[in-house]
Amino acid sequence: MSTVVETVTELVTPILEEQNFELVEVEFLKEGKNWFLRVFIDKEGGIDIEECAFVSEHLSEKLDSIDPDPIPQAYFLEVSSPGAERPLKKEADYQRALGEYIHVSLYQPLDGEKQYEGFLQSYDDAELVLKIRIKTREKEITVDRKNIAKARLAIQF
């Protein structure tokens, strides 16, 4: 259903740009019997519920005005903040996350592990360097970016 994601991205971008909001991600997926269209937005200092409602209302109006309907099945529209564990997808996300505590899930194990949490030390197009803690010692690991299934900010406990 990538065409739905592309269509929604195209429709929501001008609404967000007008408000100086950032599009974090658009998802269209089926959970159980229901379809969900999720639009994650953010801005400097965080997004609030009224701003999410504003975007939801304007996006809904745009979607309703298109004929034929770009999403013919019934679905739930959710516009929200990405939350404290915001995904890292774009270069700007990684740039903002430098020095921050992040979680990385890998396609293939690295040193026997497929998940790591640590402080993002550096990154480039090919790899990123995490400072992780193993019991009482710290160690830097280098992760091939092609091996990253998902990356997000994490909350350190």
Score class of each variant (00 low, 15 high):
residue 143 V to E: 02
residue 138 E to H: 07
residue 119 F to L: 10
residue 125 D to S: 12
residue 110 L to H: 04
residue 116 Y to H: 05
residue 137 R to M: 12
residue 94 Y to V: 09
residue 94 Y to K: 05
residue 90 K to Q: 12
residue 112 G to Y: 09
residue 88 L to P: 00
residue 137 R to C: 07
residue 123 Y to I: 04
residue 105 S to K: 00
residue 129 V to N: 03
residue 110 L to Y: 04
residue 115 Q to R: 14
residue 102 I to Q: 04
residue 96 R to Y: 02
residue 90 K to S: 03
residue 93 D to H: 11
residue 119 F to Y: 10
residue 134 I to M: 15
residue 129 V to F: 10
residue 125 D to V: 13
residue 110 L to G: 05
residue 89 K to G: 09
residue 95 Q to P: 02
residue 103 H to I: 02
residue 108 Q to H: 03
residue 142 T to K: 06
residue 100 E to C: 15
residue 106 L to V: 02
residue 128 L to F: 05
residue 113 E to A: 10
residue 143 V to L: 07
residue 126 A to P: 01
residue 95 Q to L: 06
residue 124 D to A: 05
residue 134 I to A: 15
residue 143 V to M: 04
residue 140 E to L: 13
residue 135 K to E: 14
residue 126 A to Q: 13
residue 111 D to I: 10
residue 101 Y to K: 04
residue 139 K to H: 10
residue 89 K to I: 15
residue 108 Q to Y: 08
residue 98 L to P: 05
residue 104 V to I: 01
residue 113 E to P: 02
residue 117 E to W: 12
residue 100 E to D: 11
residue 117 E to Y: 11
residue 141 I to L: 00
residue 135 K to M: 13
residue 112 G to F: 11
residue 141 I to S: 01
residue 91 E to S: 09
residue 123 Y to P: 12
residue 118 G to E: 05
residue 101 Y to E: 11
residue 109 P to H: 04
residue 107 Y to N: 03
residue 136 T to P: 12
residue 108 Q to T: 06
residue 91 E to R: 10
residue 140 E to K: 10
